[in-house]
Simulated assay, not measured.
Amino acid sequence: MFEKAQGEKVTLPCTFELSEEDEGPLDIEWVLIPADNQKREQIIIMYAVDRVYNHYYAGLTGRMQFTNLDPRSGDGSLDILNLKASDTGTYQCKVKKAPGVQSKKIQLTVLVKPARTKCSIEGSQEIGKDVTLKCVSQEGSPLLSYDWRRVSGTQNLPATSVLNKNTGELLLKNASREHSGTYSCVATNRVGTDECSVELNVTPPVNTAGIITGAIIGTLLGLSVLCSIIFCFCKKHREKKYEKEVHHDIREDVPPPKSRSSTARSYIGSNRSSLGSMSPSNMEGYTKTPYSQVPSEDFERAPTQTPAFAPSKYDIAHKIGDITVV
Protein backbone atom coordinates (compact mmCIF):
# COMPACT_ATOMS: atom_id res chain seq x y z
CA MET A 1 0.00 0.00 0.00
CA PHE A 2 1.19 3.49 -0.89
CA GLU A 3 -0.02 6.88 0.38
CA LYS A 4 1.07 9.98 -1.47
CA ALA A 5 0.08 13.60 -1.59
CA GLN A 6 -1.57 15.20 -4.55
CA GLY A 7 0.97 16.65 -6.97
CA GLU A 8 3.75 14.33 -5.94
CA LYS A 9 5.35 11.41 -7.81
CA VAL A 10 5.03 7.73 -6.98
CA THR A 11 6.88 4.63 -8.19
CA LEU A 12 4.87 1.43 -8.17
CA PRO A 13 7.44 -1.40 -7.94
CA CYS A 14 7.36 -4.47 -10.19
CA THR A 15 10.56 -6.48 -10.43
CA PHE A 16 10.93 -10.06 -11.68
CA GLU A 17 13.44 -12.81 -12.47
CA LEU A 18 13.32 -15.06 -15.50
CA SER A 19 14.07 -18.77 -15.41
CA GLU A 20 15.70 -20.90 -18.05
CA GLU A 21 12.36 -22.39 -18.90
CA ASP A 22 10.84 -19.02 -19.82
CA GLU A 23 11.49 -18.97 -23.53
CA GLY A 24 8.50 -17.07 -24.93
CA PRO A 25 8.36 -13.31 -25.69
CA LEU A 26 8.37 -10.94 -22.69
CA ASP A 27 5.07 -9.17 -22.01
CA ILE A 28 4.61 -6.64 -19.14
CA GLU A 29 1.16 -5.18 -18.53
CA TRP A 30 -0.16 -2.67 -15.98
CA VAL A 31 -3.93 -2.60 -15.34
CA LEU A 32 -6.25 -0.61 -13.07
CA ILE A 33 -8.69 -2.78 -11.14
CA PRO A 34 -12.02 -0.99 -10.62
CA ALA A 35 -13.65 -0.81 -7.20
CA ASP A 36 -16.79 -2.27 -8.76
CA ASN A 37 -16.21 -5.94 -9.49
CA GLN A 38 -18.80 -5.79 -12.23
CA LYS A 39 -16.54 -3.59 -14.36
CA ARG A 40 -13.66 -4.73 -16.49
CA GLU A 41 -10.00 -4.09 -15.79
CA GLN A 42 -8.51 -1.09 -17.59
CA ILE A 43 -5.12 -1.49 -19.30
CA ILE A 44 -3.00 1.61 -18.74
CA ILE A 45 0.43 0.69 -20.22
CA MET A 46 2.01 -2.32 -21.89
CA TYR A 47 5.44 -3.58 -23.02
CA ALA A 48 5.36 -6.18 -25.75
CA VAL A 49 7.73 -7.28 -28.52
CA ASP A 50 10.29 -4.67 -27.50
CA ARG A 51 7.78 -1.82 -27.73
CA VAL A 52 5.85 0.34 -25.21
CA TYR A 53 2.10 0.99 -25.64
CA ASN A 54 0.71 3.75 -23.40
CA HIS A 55 -2.41 5.06 -25.15
CA TYR A 56 -4.99 2.86 -23.43
CA TYR A 57 -5.98 5.05 -20.47
CA ALA A 58 -6.62 8.76 -21.12
CA GLY A 59 -6.65 9.64 -17.41
CA LEU A 60 -2.88 8.98 -17.15
CA THR A 61 -1.77 10.00 -20.62
CA GLY A 62 1.44 12.00 -20.41
CA ARG A 63 1.87 11.30 -16.68
CA MET A 64 3.14 7.68 -16.63
CA GLN A 65 6.17 5.77 -17.85
CA PHE A 66 8.26 2.66 -17.13
CA THR A 67 10.91 3.38 -14.54
CA ASN A 68 13.50 1.43 -16.55
CA LEU A 69 13.71 2.26 -20.22
CA ASP A 70 14.53 -1.45 -20.88
CA PRO A 71 12.08 -3.57 -18.86
CA ARG A 72 13.83 -6.75 -20.11
CA SER A 73 16.41 -6.19 -17.38
CA GLY A 74 13.91 -7.42 -14.84
CA ASP A 75 12.40 -4.07 -13.76
CA GLY A 76 8.89 -3.32 -14.92
CA SER A 77 8.15 -0.66 -12.26
CA LEU A 78 5.79 2.21 -13.17
CA ASP A 79 6.22 5.91 -12.45
CA ILE A 80 3.16 8.16 -12.13
CA LEU A 81 3.82 11.90 -12.11
CA ASN A 82 1.79 14.83 -10.74
CA LEU A 83 -0.60 12.64 -8.81
CA LYS A 84 -4.30 13.47 -8.61
CA ALA A 85 -6.95 12.38 -6.18
CA SER A 86 -8.61 10.48 -9.02
CA ASP A 87 -5.49 8.30 -9.32
CA THR A 88 -6.47 6.50 -6.13
CA GLY A 89 -7.11 2.81 -6.84
CA THR A 90 -5.71 -0.70 -7.09
CA TYR A 91 -3.00 -1.30 -9.71
CA GLN A 92 -1.80 -4.72 -10.89
CA CYS A 93 1.44 -5.61 -12.65
CA LYS A 94 1.39 -8.74 -14.85
CA VAL A 95 4.62 -10.29 -16.26
CA LYS A 96 4.30 -13.00 -18.90
CA LYS A 97 7.04 -15.04 -20.52
CA ALA A 98 5.76 -18.38 -21.55
CA PRO A 99 5.33 -20.60 -19.84
CA GLY A 100 5.87 -18.38 -16.76
CA VAL A 101 3.23 -15.87 -15.52
CA GLN A 102 3.35 -13.70 -12.36
CA SER A 103 1.32 -10.70 -11.03
CA LYS A 104 1.35 -8.24 -8.15
CA LYS A 105 -1.30 -5.86 -6.78
CA ILE A 106 -0.58 -2.44 -5.25
CA GLN A 107 -3.06 -0.16 -3.44
CA LEU A 108 -2.42 3.54 -4.13
CA THR A 109 -4.11 6.28 -2.10
CA VAL A 110 -3.63 9.87 -3.20
CA LEU A 111 -4.31 12.31 -0.37
CA VAL A 112 -4.92 16.04 -0.62
CA LYS A 113 -3.02 18.26 1.79
CA PRO A 114 -5.02 20.69 3.94
CA ALA A 115 -5.40 24.01 2.10
CA ARG A 116 -7.31 27.30 2.32
CA THR A 117 -7.76 26.92 6.06
CA LYS A 118 -9.84 29.73 7.59
CA CYS A 119 -10.16 30.85 11.21
CA SER A 120 -13.17 32.73 12.60
CA ILE A 121 -14.80 33.83 15.86
CA GLU A 122 -18.38 32.99 16.78
CA GLY A 123 -20.19 34.69 19.63
CA SER A 124 -19.97 38.02 21.45
CA GLN A 125 -16.46 39.06 22.44
CA GLU A 126 -17.63 40.49 25.76
CA ILE A 127 -16.44 39.80 29.27
CA GLY A 128 -18.38 36.92 30.81
CA LYS A 129 -19.62 35.53 27.50
CA ASP A 130 -18.72 32.21 25.87
CA VAL A 131 -16.65 32.60 22.69
CA THR A 132 -15.97 29.89 20.08
CA LEU A 133 -12.95 29.93 17.76
CA LYS A 134 -13.54 27.95 14.56
CA CYS A 135 -11.05 26.42 12.12
CA VAL A 136 -12.02 24.80 8.79
CA SER A 137 -9.93 23.67 5.80
CA GLN A 138 -11.60 24.10 2.41
CA GLU A 139 -9.44 21.35 0.95
CA GLY A 140 -7.86 18.24 2.40
CA SER A 141 -8.42 14.52 2.50
CA PRO A 142 -9.78 12.98 5.68
CA LEU A 143 -9.00 12.34 8.34
CA LEU A 144 -8.21 15.95 9.24
CA SER A 145 -7.10 16.92 12.71
CA TYR A 146 -7.17 20.46 14.12
CA ASP A 147 -5.05 21.87 16.90
CA TRP A 148 -5.25 25.36 18.47
CA ARG A 149 -2.46 27.21 20.24
CA ARG A 150 -2.01 30.70 21.62
CA VAL A 151 0.66 32.74 19.88
CA SER A 152 0.79 35.81 22.15
CA GLY A 153 1.07 36.10 25.92
CA THR A 154 1.60 32.91 27.86
CA GLN A 155 1.14 30.81 24.66
CA ASN A 156 -0.98 28.42 26.68
CA LEU A 157 -4.68 27.91 26.12
CA PRO A 158 -6.95 29.17 28.94
CA ALA A 159 -7.72 26.59 31.59
CA THR A 160 -11.46 26.84 30.88
CA SER A 161 -11.08 26.20 27.13
CA VAL A 162 -12.45 23.07 25.43
CA LEU A 163 -10.88 21.81 22.15
CA ASN A 164 -12.53 19.53 19.61
CA LYS A 165 -9.78 18.29 17.26
CA ASN A 166 -12.19 16.71 14.80
CA THR A 167 -14.33 19.81 14.19
CA GLY A 168 -11.65 22.43 14.82
CA GLU A 169 -13.71 24.33 17.45
CA LEU A 170 -12.13 25.90 20.53
CA LEU A 171 -14.65 26.97 23.19
CA LEU A 172 -13.58 29.68 25.65
CA LYS A 173 -15.98 29.75 28.59
CA ASN A 174 -16.60 32.90 30.63
CA ALA A 175 -14.20 35.01 28.57
CA SER A 176 -12.11 37.65 30.30
CA ARG A 177 -9.57 40.29 29.29
CA GLU A 178 -6.78 37.76 29.93
CA HIS A 179 -8.14 35.64 27.07
CA SER A 180 -7.42 38.39 24.54
CA GLY A 181 -4.62 37.71 22.07
CA THR A 182 -3.67 35.94 18.84
CA TYR A 183 -4.67 32.30 18.38
CA SER A 184 -3.37 29.95 15.69
CA CYS A 185 -4.93 26.78 14.26
CA VAL A 186 -3.02 23.99 12.48
CA ALA A 187 -4.92 21.56 10.23
CA THR A 188 -3.16 18.22 9.68
CA ASN A 189 -3.61 14.98 7.78
CA ARG A 190 -1.18 12.22 6.83
CA VAL A 191 0.37 14.13 3.94
CA GLY A 192 0.57 17.76 5.05
CA THR A 193 -0.46 20.72 7.21
CA ASP A 194 -1.99 24.17 6.82
CA GLU A 195 -2.35 27.05 9.26
CA CYS A 196 -4.42 30.16 9.98
CA SER A 197 -4.73 32.66 12.85
CA VAL A 198 -7.27 35.02 14.41
CA GLU A 199 -7.18 37.96 16.83
CA LEU A 200 -9.44 37.80 19.91
CA ASN A 201 -10.27 41.05 21.74
CA VAL A 202 -12.46 40.64 24.82
CA THR A 203 -14.15 43.95 25.82
CA PRO A 204 -16.60 45.11 28.54
CA PRO A 205 -20.33 44.70 27.84
CA VAL A 206 -21.98 47.37 25.73
CA ASN A 207 -24.48 49.74 27.46
CA THR A 208 -27.51 48.65 25.49
CA ALA A 209 -29.92 50.74 27.59
CA GLY A 210 -28.06 53.94 26.73
CA ILE A 211 -28.01 53.02 23.04
CA ILE A 212 -31.76 52.37 23.02
CA THR A 213 -32.47 55.66 24.86
CA GLY A 214 -30.29 57.60 22.47
CA ALA A 215 -31.99 55.99 19.50
CA ILE A 216 -35.45 56.93 20.85
CA ILE A 217 -34.42 60.54 21.53
CA GLY A 218 -32.85 60.85 18.12
CA THR A 219 -36.01 59.50 16.49
CA LEU A 220 -38.23 61.95 18.38
CA LEU A 221 -36.00 64.89 17.46
CA GLY A 222 -36.06 63.83 13.84
CA LEU A 223 -39.85 63.62 13.88
CA SER A 224 -40.17 67.08 15.49
CA VAL A 225 -37.89 68.64 12.88
CA LEU A 226 -39.86 66.95 10.12
CA CYS A 227 -43.17 68.20 11.54
CA SER A 228 -41.77 71.76 11.77
CA ILE A 229 -40.70 71.66 8.15
CA ILE A 230 -44.12 70.40 7.05
CA PHE A 231 -45.92 73.10 9.12
CA CYS A 232 -43.78 75.92 7.67
CA PHE A 233 -44.31 74.62 4.17
CA CYS A 234 -48.09 74.46 4.60
CA LYS A 235 -48.19 77.96 6.13
CA LYS A 236 -46.20 79.45 3.30
CA HIS A 237 -48.43 77.69 0.77
CA ARG A 238 -51.58 79.17 2.40
CA GLU A 239 -50.09 82.68 2.38
CA LYS A 240 -49.27 82.47 -1.31
CA LYS A 241 -52.77 81.20 -2.06
CA TYR A 242 -54.36 84.07 -0.07
CA GLU A 243 -52.27 86.71 -1.89
CA LYS A 244 -53.37 85.36 -5.26
CA GLU A 245 -57.07 85.42 -4.25
CA VAL A 246 -56.92 89.04 -2.95
CA HIS A 247 -55.14 90.28 -6.08
CA HIS A 248 -57.74 88.57 -8.26
CA ASP A 249 -60.69 90.16 -6.33
CA ILE A 250 -59.30 93.71 -6.71
CA ARG A 251 -58.76 93.34 -10.41
CA GLU A 252 -62.21 91.84 -11.13
CA ASP A 253 -64.66 93.60 -8.74
CA VAL A 254 -63.60 97.32 -8.62
CA PRO A 255 -65.25 99.31 -11.52
CA PRO A 256 -63.23 101.96 -13.40
CA PRO A 257 -63.74 105.67 -12.37
CA LYS A 258 -66.16 107.81 -14.41
CA SER A 259 -64.84 110.68 -16.52
CA ARG A 260 -65.77 114.32 -15.84
CA SER A 261 -67.28 114.83 -19.29
CA SER A 262 -69.85 112.06 -18.77
CA THR A 263 -70.81 113.60 -15.40
CA ALA A 264 -71.32 117.03 -16.94
CA ARG A 265 -73.39 115.68 -19.77
CA SER A 266 -75.63 113.80 -17.41
CA TYR A 267 -76.12 117.01 -15.39
CA ILE A 268 -77.12 119.01 -18.48
CA GLY A 269 -79.42 116.21 -19.60
CA SER A 270 -81.15 116.31 -16.23
CA ASN A 271 -81.66 120.10 -16.59
CA ARG A 272 -83.19 119.66 -20.02
CA SER A 273 -85.58 117.06 -18.72
CA SER A 274 -86.59 119.43 -15.96
CA LEU A 275 -87.33 122.21 -18.46
CA GLY A 276 -89.15 119.90 -20.81
CA SER A 277 -91.50 118.81 -18.06
CA MET A 278 -92.73 122.35 -17.32
CA SER A 279 -96.33 123.08 -18.33
CA PRO A 280 -97.84 126.53 -19.12
CA SER A 281 -99.39 126.61 -15.68
CA ASN A 282 -96.02 126.14 -14.13
CA MET A 283 -94.55 128.97 -16.12
CA GLU A 284 -96.96 131.63 -14.96
CA GLY A 285 -94.77 132.50 -12.07
CA TYR A 286 -91.89 133.47 -14.33
CA THR A 287 -91.55 137.02 -15.75
CA LYS A 288 -91.53 137.11 -19.53
CA THR A 289 -88.85 139.34 -20.81
CA PRO A 290 -89.11 140.03 -24.55
CA TYR A 291 -86.09 139.63 -26.63
CA SER A 292 -85.36 142.02 -29.43
CA GLN A 293 -83.72 139.40 -31.50
CA VAL A 294 -83.56 135.69 -31.96
CA PRO A 295 -80.83 133.98 -29.92
CA SER A 296 -77.70 133.44 -31.79
CA GLU A 297 -76.58 130.08 -33.07
CA ASP A 298 -73.86 129.99 -30.52
CA PHE A 299 -76.46 130.31 -27.75
CA GLU A 300 -78.43 127.35 -29.02
CA ARG A 301 -75.37 125.18 -29.20
CA ALA A 302 -74.32 125.99 -25.71
CA PRO A 303 -76.27 123.18 -23.99
CA THR A 304 -74.40 120.53 -25.97
CA GLN A 305 -71.10 121.71 -24.58
CA THR A 306 -69.82 121.05 -21.13
CA PRO A 307 -70.82 124.09 -18.97
CA ALA A 308 -68.18 125.69 -16.87
CA PHE A 309 -70.77 126.47 -14.14
CA ALA A 310 -74.39 125.62 -13.27
CA PRO A 311 -76.99 128.09 -14.81
CA SER A 312 -78.94 130.33 -12.41
CA LYS A 313 -82.71 130.63 -12.16
CA TYR A 314 -82.54 134.07 -13.78
CA ASP A 315 -80.93 132.69 -16.95
CA ILE A 316 -83.44 129.91 -17.14
CA ALA A 317 -86.33 132.43 -16.90
CA HIS A 318 -85.03 134.48 -19.81
CA LYS A 319 -84.72 131.40 -21.95
CA ILE A 320 -88.23 130.26 -21.16
CA GLY A 321 -89.72 133.67 -21.98
CA ASP A 322 -89.12 133.18 -25.64
CA ILE A 323 -90.81 129.77 -25.79
CA THR A 324 -94.20 129.69 -27.65
CA VAL A 325 -96.69 127.36 -26.01
CA VAL A 326 -99.23 125.59 -28.36
Results as ranks from 00 to 15, higher is better:
residue 259 S to Y: 01
residue 221 L to R: 00
residue 257 P to E: 04
residue 228 S to P: 00
residue 244 K to N: 10
residue 234 C to N: 07
residue 238 R to M: 11
residue 243 E to D: 10
residue 252 E to C: 05
residue 278 M to C: 09
residue 184 S to D: 02
residue 209 A to P: 01
residue 234 C to D: 11
residue 231 F to G: 13
residue 243 E to N: 07
residue 241 K to V: 01
residue 248 H to L: 14
residue 245 E to P: 00
residue 184 S to W: 03
residue 283 M to H: 01
residue 208 T to V: 13
residue 281 S to Y: 14
residue 196 C to N: 11
residue 182 T to N: 04
residue 276 G to L: 14
residue 248 H to P: 00
residue 276 G to K: 11
residue 244 K to I: 08
residue 255 P to Y: 01
residue 291 Y to W: 04
residue 225 V to P: 00
residue 194 D to Y: 02
residue 251 R to L: 14
residue 197 S to G: 07
residue 297 E to N: 06
residue 258 K to T: 11
residue 183 Y to P: 02
residue 276 G to M: 06
residue 242 Y to E: 14
residue 241 K to C: 00
residue 284 E to T: 02
residue 245 E to T: 11
residue 282 N to C: 07
residue 257 P to Y: 00
residue 247 H to D: 02
residue 279 S to N: 12
residue 277 S to R: 07
residue 227 C to Q: 06
residue 254 V to T: 09
residue 277 S to G: 13
residue 204 P to H: 08
residue 198 V to Y: 05
residue 235 K to Q: 08
residue 201 N to D: 13
residue 286 Y to M: 10
residue 274 S to H: 05
residue 184 S to R: 15
residue 204 P to M: 06
residue 199 E to V: 09
residue 245 E to A: 13
residue 182 T to R: 08
residue 220 L to T: 04
residue 223 L to Q: 04
residue 189 N to M: 03
residue 253 D to A: 11
residue 267 Y to T: 13
residue 201 N to S: 09
residue 199 E to Q: 07
residue 219 T to I: 07
residue 223 L to G: 13
residue 223 L to W: 09
residue 194 D to R: 01
residue 279 S to K: 13
residue 259 S to V: 04
residue 190 R to F: 09
residue 285 G to I: 12
residue 269 G to T: 15
residue 253 D to I: 13
residue 298 D to Y: 09
residue 231 F to W: 13
residue 271 N to G: 05
residue 223 L to T: 02
residue 272 R to N: 08
residue 296 S to Y: 03
residue 241 K to E: 12
residue 296 S to V: 05
residue 263 T to K: 12
residue 236 K to P: 00
residue 260 R to F: 12
residue 275 L to I: 15
residue 195 E to H: 01
residue 215 A to M: 10
residue 187 A to G: 11
residue 191 V to N: 05
residue 189 N to L: 03
residue 267 Y to L: 11
residue 289 T to H: 09
residue 196 C to K: 01
residue 244 K to F: 13
residue 193 T to D: 02
residue 193 T to V: 10
residue 200 L to P: 04
residue 258 K to C: 03
residue 297 E to Y: 08
residue 297 E to M: 10
residue 266 S to W: 03
residue 232 C to T: 14
residue 232 C to A: 13
residue 216 I to N: 03
residue 253 D to H: 10
residue 183 Y to E: 06
residue 256 P to T: 04
residue 236 K to H: 09
residue 234 C to Q: 14
residue 198 V to W: 05
residue 242 Y to H: 11
residue 278 M to P: 05
residue 281 S to G: 12
residue 229 I to H: 03
residue 188 T to F: 01
residue 258 K to Q: 08
residue 217 I to S: 06
residue 191 V to H: 02
residue 219 T to Y: 07
residue 190 R to A: 15
residue 280 P to K: 11
residue 203 T to F: 01
residue 184 S to I: 00
residue 266 S to Y: 06
residue 258 K to R: 12
residue 214 G to C: 04
residue 275 L to A: 15
residue 199 E to K: 12
residue 298 D to Q: 12
residue 291 Y to C: 04
residue 250 I to E: 08
residue 272 R to G: 04
residue 284 E to K: 10
residue 267 Y to R: 13
residue 248 H to V: 02
residue 196 C to E: 03
residue 206 V to N: 00
residue 187 A to M: 05
residue 250 I to N: 02
residue 196 C to Y: 06
residue 299 F to W: 11
residue 294 V to M: 07
residue 271 N to D: 01
residue 236 K to I: 09
residue 223 L to H: 02
residue 265 R to Q: 08
residue 216 I to H: 03
residue 275 L to V: 15
residue 262 S to Q: 07
residue 296 S to T: 14
residue 213 T to N: 05
residue 255 P to H: 11
residue 182 T to G: 01
residue 290 P to S: 06
residue 201 N to R: 07
